[in-house]
């Protein structure tokens, strides 16, 4: 039983790490820029969230498959096969959870008051310092929310993973796949245990997120401290 659990965690964590970097940078890049076609571009970014996983799986096969655009290049030049390895599962998980991370990051950056960034500039800060000291810390709660949602989604990925990574026990069999095939073969005990595990992991992640967000933002966003501490002149 531990095989699928460890693999699922590995796949989801790496997928989310990829999303965290790419989606955050993309959201930051697009946040305060207006250009023709931005709407269309954002529609494509959100697309994996609404399309059936089988469509994504098919798309990924076209790109990563042995005769696919990227797959063929990697196979011929580096003797690297992506499909039906756990790397394909990472690709699938990263693609389906990307929109969640992107949307959260976008909302988080949009919520940062622009005059704070301006103030930091007049105080002599370079653009990178403005980003690291002002924008990022203020967008932080929203970014963490995006990470947790993306993680939960990546953990539960089934359809696209099955298509590109297959169901190879010990190699590409993640929890959702293991549950499906356990039920299929009549092993209800294993299915039940895995269901409990994945539900537990998801609930823990979401519960912790809510708790943390409330604690983190209380002091500096709402000034929510006991009245007695406030002193007015």
């Amino acid at each position: 039983m531990s095989g699928p659990i460890v693999l699922s965690l590995k796949v989801a964590l790496i997928a989310v790490a990829i999303d965290a970097v790419l989606a955050t940078l993309l959201a930051r890049l697009l946040a305060r820029r207006e250009f023709p076609g931005k709407n269309l571009l954002e529609s494509f970014i959100i697309l994996p969230m609404v399309l059936p996983p089988t469509v994504l799986g098919f798309g990924l096969l076209i790109v990563l498959g042995k005769r696919g655009l990227l797959g063929r290049f990697l196979l011929e030049n580096f003797d690297l096969q992506i499909v039906f390895t756990w790397w394909a599962a990472i690709f699938a998980a990263a693609v389906v959870s990307f929109p969640l991370m992107y949307q959260s990051a976008k909302a988080a950056f949009a919520s940062v008051d622009m005059s704070l960034e301006q103030a930091a500039r007049t105080l002599g800060s370079s653009e990178s310092r403005v980003f690291l000291r002002i924008t990022l810390p203020l967008a932080y709660p929203g970014l963490i929310a995006g990470l947790v949602l993306a993680f939960a989604r990546a953990l539960g990925e089934f359809g696209a993973t099955l298509m590109v990574a297959g169901n190879i026990p010990g190699k590409t069999q993640t929890i959702p796949l293991a549950i499906y095939f356990a039920v299929e073969t009549g092993d209800n005990t294993l299915a039940r245990n895995l269901v409990l595990v994945i539900t537990g992991m998801s609930v823990t992640a979401l519960f912790w997120l809510n708790l943390w967000l409330r604690k983190k933002t209380r002091v500096w966003q709402k000034g929510d401290t006991p009245r007695a501490e406030r002193l007015h002149p």
Partner: peptide, 12 residues
């Protein structure tokens, strides 16, 4: 130096 209308103090 620039003192903004809403002060623009860094809330965090």
């Amino acid at each position: 130096g620039y003192v903004f209308q809403d002060y623009a103090l860094f809330p965090h």
